[in-house]
Nucleic acid binder design. Structure first.
Lengths: 105, 105
DNA sequence: CGTGTATATGCCTGTTGGGATATATTGCCG
DNA sequence: CGGCAATATATCCCAACAGGCATATACACG
């Protein structure tokens, strides 16, 4: 988990994940849309793989990278206690608004 | 948003946020439970404040730091499209299990 | 087997970031 | 006003990291 944040701290890596949301992509494909050299992209992919955010499928000399959601699920659960905080205030607001409805009563 | 990830990448800072979930705390209080020197803690608080993750209230020479949820709400919404991906697969699994129920029929 | 294509790795460099120590700042109290 | 308590800032050091270029590796195909 700890490491997931560090990995996501890099904007290019988040960009890669965003691209992979649409499906598997070979490295060259990513290089084209990333204003980065191929070695740089490969490096980021390695880091993403290390964090389990991505997995590879080999197809001849092409390597297709695909998103893995597990670490993001963990991130989501890290967020959970905080989310409870704002949803509970939202609930409070809703309750408040409820008490205010029908103003002319 | 970009910056929120970078800020959260630091474990001590996440620890600080965790502590602040229980309520306002003065700096010294944080220093005590953080295996860090006071200047280090102040630095982290400065970064957290810069990212809007924390706000200060001054009370004489004491400064009470408090959690701010806004950036975490944003993080949550960054996560949203990914969350859709795993909830939809979960839905698919549920549908699958539905088709499998009543095995001896 | 040699050549070209796709991707990974090594090496170097500049920058950033966290930590510690020392010092400045602010506000209280006697 | 002097001194103490709480916190912030300045300075320095070291480690980690991203990026680029050059090069290695892997694989297909003629």
């Amino acid at each position: 988990m700890a490491s997931t944040f560090e990995v996501l701290a890099e904007p290019h890596r988040r960009e890669i994940l965003d691209l992979l949301r649409e499906g598997e992509r070979p490295v060259g494909d990513l290089v084209e849309r990333l204003a980065l050299t191929q070695p740089a992209v490969s490096k980021h992919l390695r880091v993403l793989r290390g964090a389990g955010l991505v997995e590879v499928r080999q197809d001849a000399q092409r390597r297709w990278y695909r998103l893995r959601l597990d670490p993001l699920v963990e991130l989501d659960s890290w967020l959970e206690p905080y989310r409870r905080m704002w949803t509970s205030s939202l609930d409070a607001l809703e309750r408040h608004l409820d008490t205010m409805e029908d103003p002319d009563e």
